[in-house]
Design a protein around this nucleic acid. Structure first.
Lengths: 342, 342
DNA sequence: GCCGTTTTGGAAACCGGTGTCAGCTATAGC
DNA sequence: GCTATAGCTGACACCGGTTTCCAAAACGGC
């Protein structure tokens, strides 16, 4: 009697002459198993090409083999980098990635997320900034019993639940580089309120100027919201100042591209008339003209590490090395910075 | 006896005083049901906030409520746009999106994909180019009994399984625009071999020149692979020609950005010395300097439509309007085109 | 009023795994 | 040689739905 479709655990059990339960034990690497039995069952499994049915496992275990990516990040490139890092970590495992955008503004965001998590019974979720900075969300995951790892620009949680970068320090180093080049009048295009990354980067900016003893008038800080257009508008305001700033640090690359645009529109040459440093090192940084000096934010590596944290212990082979929780951003020097007035 | 966790179909049945089966009929909108019974059950469902367990349904129905996005597209922005369109279509439904990158080069690609589809028992998959152009993949889906919709730059399949754009015609119109401006020596940065989009765009390019009676020496065609760097290298070759082309059509925006780079490196001003048209209208097109004239490829709308096709009939309310299968790309005029020699 | 047909509801099996717990072997200890 | 113990193994219930099959009820025609 030839069965149709894929082999089930019953087929394996029957052919190997053992019970379902024993096969289940083999699959789950139960330690209390005779070596010989295991061998025999494994052979049958290999022969049949048997693969446990994920749906049945999900039902029995009350837990899916899905990792969720929860995000409300407006930057497509950043989201893609995170996905890439996650997928790299998940590759070859039994886990799949499901993407769940949430609406930061919506009042029902937490409820929606709760419904999603309760329904889907995900194995775990990776929280991307800025939603990852919301402690209510982390608490929600805890309440529901869903594993989670948060990504962000500062340490907000213990190492088991957090993968962070050191934005503040990285920006400090970047702005110190501007100071070393001789810049004293440096503008900041800040990120949106409510983003921790925006705050950290701004603090790093202030750190650098403070350490150099350079005063920072409020007028040299312009608000942006991480979009190209907001960078352009912010730069227009900064470039209208008299005297004009000789350098601008933009809290992300996309706004930096807007700054370049604004500068070019008024005939300024970069870096002769204006030095610019961005943040993220997205492809746009290398593709604008001149190539943008920027801070490389290792977001893909962070995502990979976060995903590995999430699934650590679930896989056959233990993750030998403890995944790092703090990632260092580095300054990438390209062509958008020079000494002022030259 | 207070149950913990979420209500199950048994709870609903017990409280409503009916059998599981009857509740199941209500959930699945079975027509053979007394109107009163249905009302009563629906009330209990609403009271309890009962939501059927997707894992159990997946097991019983042998079909998951997941839509897969299968892609091997190198362009992050394109992938994001597709995801956005898909998620828009899936929003508010019971479906979730799982992303599955495949390795075009790998010899085992088809086998890997087969394993994935067989294991996960997805409701359906959306195939992005260029993997969508592979007929073997479509056949695989058919064999396995997995719904699919292909996206692409030309009609490769029947309307039920395909959402296409008219790249060839769109490029023809774009290049005719260059001809109208007075350009006669126009270079092409072609896309990679094996991409249907590359072929269609090249054909559109040739159509326009042919219609205008302009000869197209082989030397004016440079190969690229859709990356910034390949565009830069291709442009360097084209700009070395004597006489130099006065305009270049690039088969996507990212390569067009490379062309701009190459032009700028040798001191050419755009559009005075060189006109450029790209394809896709990704954000980079608006953010480079000068803003790039390009063909807007409605990939997000295509993805949305494709996803709706996929789930059509599965939802309670039928999709009233038939989803379109052909999408028109339009020329977006920005600042990178001018008449030659001025 | 009787019988056949249609509608409606329930019991039980099933989807394909996992958890519990009892029972069966070996081996060791005496 | 007999029991205590530990190590394996299997029977059976269960996860939460759907499907099959059948019976009861309602309905309609004569």
């Amino acid at each position: 009697m030839q069965k149709t479709g894929q082999p089930t655990i019953n087929d394996v059990a029957r052919i190997a002459g053992v019970s379902k339960k024993t096969v289940s034990r083999v699959i789950n690497h139960s330690p209390l198993l005779n070596e010989e039995t295991r061998k025999r069952v494994e052979e049958v499994i290999a022969d049949l090409g048997y693969i446990p049915n994920p749906q049945a496992r999900a039902l029995a275990l009350r837990r899916n083999f899905l990792i969720g990516l929860v995000h409300d990040n407006p930057n497509a490139q950043t989201v893609m980098n995170v996905q890439q890092g996650m997928l790299e970590a998940l590759h070859g495992t039994e886990f799949e990635m499901v993407v769940r955008p949430v609406d930061r503004g919506a009042a029902t965001m937490l409820d929606d997320l709760r419904h999603f998590l309760e329904r889907q019974r995900l194995f775990g979720v990776l929280l991307m900034p800025p939603v990852s900075e919301n402690d209510m969300v982390a608490k929600l995951c805890d309440d529901i019993g869903c594993r989670y790892v948060r990504m962000g620009s500062a340490q907000l949680d213990d190492a088991a639940h957090m993968v962070a970068s050191n934005d503040r320090e990285a920006v400090r180093i970047a702005v110190e580089y501007l100071v070393e080049q001789g810049h004293e009048r440096i503008g900041l295009v800040a990120g949106p309120h409510g983003f921790r990354s925006a705050r950290e980067r701004r603090l790093g900016f202030e750190d650098a100027l403070g350490a150099a003893g350079i005063a920072l008038p409020r007028s040299l800080i312009a608000d942006g919201n991480y979009t190209f257009e907001s960078g352009l508008i912010a730069a227009e305001r900064l470039l209208d100042l008299v005297p004009r700033p000789t350098a601008i640090f933009s809290s992300n690359d996309e706004m930096a591209a807007g700054v370049i645009h604004a500068a070019r529109q008024r005939g300024l040459e970069i870096p002769r008339d204006l030095s610019i440093i961005g943040f993220d090192d997205t492809p746009i940084a290398a593709h604008v003209w001149p190539p943008l000096t920027t801070v490389r934010w290792p977001i893909a590596s962070m995502a990979r590490s976060a995903a590995l944290k999430l699934i650590a212990g679930a896989e056959e082979e233990e993750v030998g090395v403890e995944e790092p929780s703090l990632f260092l951003s580095t300054l990438i020097r390209r062509g958008s910075v020079a000494a002022p007035g030259r």
